[in-house]
Amino acid sequence: MPHGLAFDIAHLLAGGLVLMSFLLLYQVRLYAMLNIFALHALVLALSVAWQALVQGAPHLYITALIALVFKAITIPVALHRIIQRLGIHREIETVVGIGPTMLVGMGLVALAMVVMLPVTANADALAREDLAFALSVVLLGLLVMVTRRNAVSQVVGFMSLENGLVLAATGAKGMPLVVEISVAFSILIAFIVIGIFLFRIRERFDTVDLQALDRFRGERR
C-alpha cells in the first residue's frame, strides 16, 4: 500500500516517540532520564506540529507549543532543580532488571498493535498507526512507573504516559482544542501536586525512595 510523505513522517515521529519510551525504560541515572524525557516531549511536539500541518488544523500548533514549552523545557528544568535542591541520590533502583523490562516492553508494544489494528480497521491509516503507537507509549509509561522505586522517576513515567495520551488525541481528526488543553493543564497540576508531595516526603523521611514510606502505612506490610 503506497503512502505519501505525510504518512511516512508522521509514522517516523510516532515511532520515534515509542523509541524514546524505550530509552526511558533503561536509564539508570536521574539526569539522563530527565534529558530523555525532554527529548520525548520534543518528539511529541514535532509529531503534533506535523499533524497540525497535515490535518490543516492550526489549533494543534498551540498544543505542540504547550508540549514544547511545558514538557520539553519547564518540567525537566524544574525537576533538575528539585533534584539538586533535595540532593537526591542520582542512581535509580529498579525493581526488575533492565533486560527483562525491555523484553516486557516489546511484548507490550506487540500487544498494543494486536489490540489496536483490528479495532480501527475502518479508520484512515494515519490515525491507525498513531493510535497503536500511542497505546504503546501509554503502556510503556505505566511500565516505567511500575518498575522504578524512585518517586522522581515515577513522575517522569507518568508524564511520558500523558505524552502518549496527547499523541492519541492529536492523531484522531477533529479532537477539539479544549480537550487537549484541559489534558495538558491537568497534567501540569498533577506535576505541581506531585512536586509538592516530593518536598513533603523528603522533609519528613529524608529520602524520596518510596520504600521508606511503606513502614508508615498501617499496621503491616
Binding site: L111, L139, L210, R217, G218, E219
Partner: peptide
C-alpha cells in the same frame, strides 16, 4: 489493603494489560 504504592500501580497495570489481552 496494605500493599505498597508501586504494587497498586502494578495491579492497575496488570489489570489493563489483562483486559487488552
Amino acid at each position: 489493603q496494605f500493599l505498597t504504592i508501586r504494587r497498586y500501580l502494578g495491579m492497575v497495570f496488570l489489570a489493563l494489560v489483562t483486559l487488552l489481552l
